[in-house]
Every structure is written in structure tokens, then in C-alpha cells.
């Protein structure tokens, strides 16, 4: 509980820092433009080619939007880990964190906060609601629960990616770019209708990084495309499991740092 309080204190001070700059509202606008323009390719493609079998643009967008919103949540509330490899290890600020008598995890997670990142969450969430309305989904308590669980699970999963990256960064920060496959590139995978998605992609994003578990299965459960609620509710445990796995790597990295100091 104390950790949580401290985390929000950290967020607060970083938010205040951000607001010191006059251009912060432009940053909000910037992220909003990113969010709106990001799926422009797929929308225009549907516009030209029409639906693919039963896969309409709304269906694809719903899955996409759930993934993006989760990613946005992680980017907003675990920004410190996202920045960690590039902003903290090199600068030696991590030493400072080790010198404070509280959880290293909380300190790193709260070490950066950019208010404008929330616009990805906002944009994504609007898209989810719009798609659900278009698809005549029912806003029953169960469906809302599945959706919320999906977003929380997604938050954990993407935080897991950041944490894992940070853990690996203790060993090398050269060539960490491939992690992009599991962050910004990962939700691009949702552009493939799931029936046509190559097996390898499907397995990678189900059994390793559970991106589809937190997006496709909940969406399918909510809209009744054939996957049951049991699978839809797997989002939260799957996200937690991935985060747990990442934390293991992170701990390993911290220990390595303490023994080499590099």
C-alpha cells in the first residue's frame, strides 16, 4: 500500500515536471494524431477492397483498439520501464534508485510520466466503444467485465514487455530494437483477420506474448464470434503470467547489474 502511494507521488512529481513546459498540450495533440492516423492504412484498404469474408473493418478495428488501449495504458503508467534502457542505465540514474530505501520496481515505473500518453488510451477506448456499437454488441455486465479484464490484462502484458526489455538492457542495450516487435509492431498483427493469420504469428502472440489473448479472445467473447467467455476471461491471468515471467528476467538483470556495475 505504501508502495502504491509512493508510486502516485512519483507520477505526480513527473507530471508537474511535464506541465512546466509550455508545449505539453501540443504533445497531447501529437499523440492523438498518432492514434487516429495509425490505422489509416487498414481503413483505406478496407475502403478499397471491402470486407474479407465475415471480417469487416469494425471487427478488425475492435481487436486492434483493445490491443492499442492496453498498450497505451502500459505506456502511460509504466513509462519508466519503457524509457529505462535508454534513459536510466546509461546516465547512471539507476544507482540513485538503488540508494533509496523503497521498491526498485515502483521507482523505475514511476520515474517517467507523460500526460500526453493518455491520449492513446482515450483514442483507443473511443474506438472500442464505436466498434461495439457498430457491431451491435450488448453492454451486459458480463461483457463490460470481460472488457475491463482484457484491458487490465493487456496493461500487465505490455508492462511485462517493457520490464523484460529493461531486464535485458542490463546485459546489452545495443540491439534492443527487436523488442519493437512486441510493442508498437505487435498490435499491427491484429490487422490480419485471425482465420487467415499465419500459424506462427498466432502462436507467438498467444503462447509467448499473449497479445491475442488480451485482444482477440475478449472481443470474440463480447461480440459472440465463436470464442467462449472462458477464453475471453483468460486475458487477466495471461497478462499476469507474462508480467511474472518478465519480472524474473528483470530481477536477474538487477542482480547482474549489482555484480558488474556496468
Amino acid at each position: 500500500m505504501k508502495s502504491l502511494k509512493l508510486y502516485f507521488k512519483y507520477i505526480r512529481i513527473n507530471m508537474l515536471s511535464g506541465l512546466q513546459y509550455k508545449g505539453w498540450w501540443l504533445m497531447i495533440l501529437q499523440t492523438l494524431i498518432v492514434v487516429v492516423t495509425d490505422p489509416i492504412g487498414i481503413i483505406l484498404l478496407f475502403y478499397r477492397f471491402g470486407s474479407v469474408g465475415e471480417w469487416s473493418v469494425e471487427k478488425i478495428l475492435l481487436i486492434y483498439a483493445i490491443a492499442v488501449t492496453s498498450f497505451g495504458l502500459a505506456e502511460t503508467f509504466s513509462r519508466g520501464f519503457d524509457y529505462f534502457p535508454w534513459r536510466m542505465i546509461r546516465s547512471g540514474d539507476f544507482d540513485r534508485i538503488l540508494l533509496r530505501p523503497c521498491s526498485v520496481f515502483v521507482q523505475v515505473a514511476g520515474s517517467f510520466f507523460h500526460i500526453h500518453r493518455i491520449s492513446r488510451v482515450f483514442g483507443g477506448f473511443c474506438a472500442i466503444i464505436w466498434c461495439m456499437l457498430k457491431l451491435d454488441a450488448v453492454f451486459s455486465p458480463l461483457n463490460v467485465l470481460v472488457l475491463i479484464m482484457a484491458l487490465i490484462g493487456g496493461y500487465f502484458a505490455y508492462t511485462g514487455v517493457f520490464v523484460m526489455t529493461s531486464g535485458i538492457a542490463f546485459f546489452t542495450i545495443e540491439g534492443l530494437d527487436w523488442i519493437y516487435i512486441f510493442t508498437n509492431a505487435s498490435y499491427q498483427v491484429t490487422r490480419c483477420p485471425i482465420d487467415y493469420m499465419p500459424k506462427i504469428l498466432r502462436n507467438l502472440f498467444t503462447f509467448f506474448m499473449p497479445m491475442l489473448v488480451i485482444s482477440y479472445y475478449p472481443a470474440s467473447a463480447i461480440c459472440g464470434w465463436g470464442e467462449g467467455y472462458a477464453k475471453g476471461l483468460l486475458a487477466l491471468p495471461a497478462g499476469l503470467a507474462f508480467l511474472g515471467f518478465s519480472l524474473y528476467i528483470w530481477r536477474f538483470g538487477v542482480r547482474h547489474y549489482q555484480s558488474t556495475g556496468s
Binding site: 471491402g50 470486407s51 474479407v52 469474408g53 499491427q188 490480419c192 493469420m197
Partner: peptide, 14 residues
């Protein structure tokens, strides 16, 4: 991924 998406649209789109 891009190529996969285009292939799907060229082959299966309505």
C-alpha cells in the same frame, strides 16, 4: 506482416 495483410486482401477480400 504487411505482405501477409495485402495477400489476404488480394486473395480473399470480397
Amino acid at each position: 506482416i504487411e505482405i501477409t495483410v495485402y495477400t489476404i486482401f488480394f486473395k480473399y477480400a470480397n
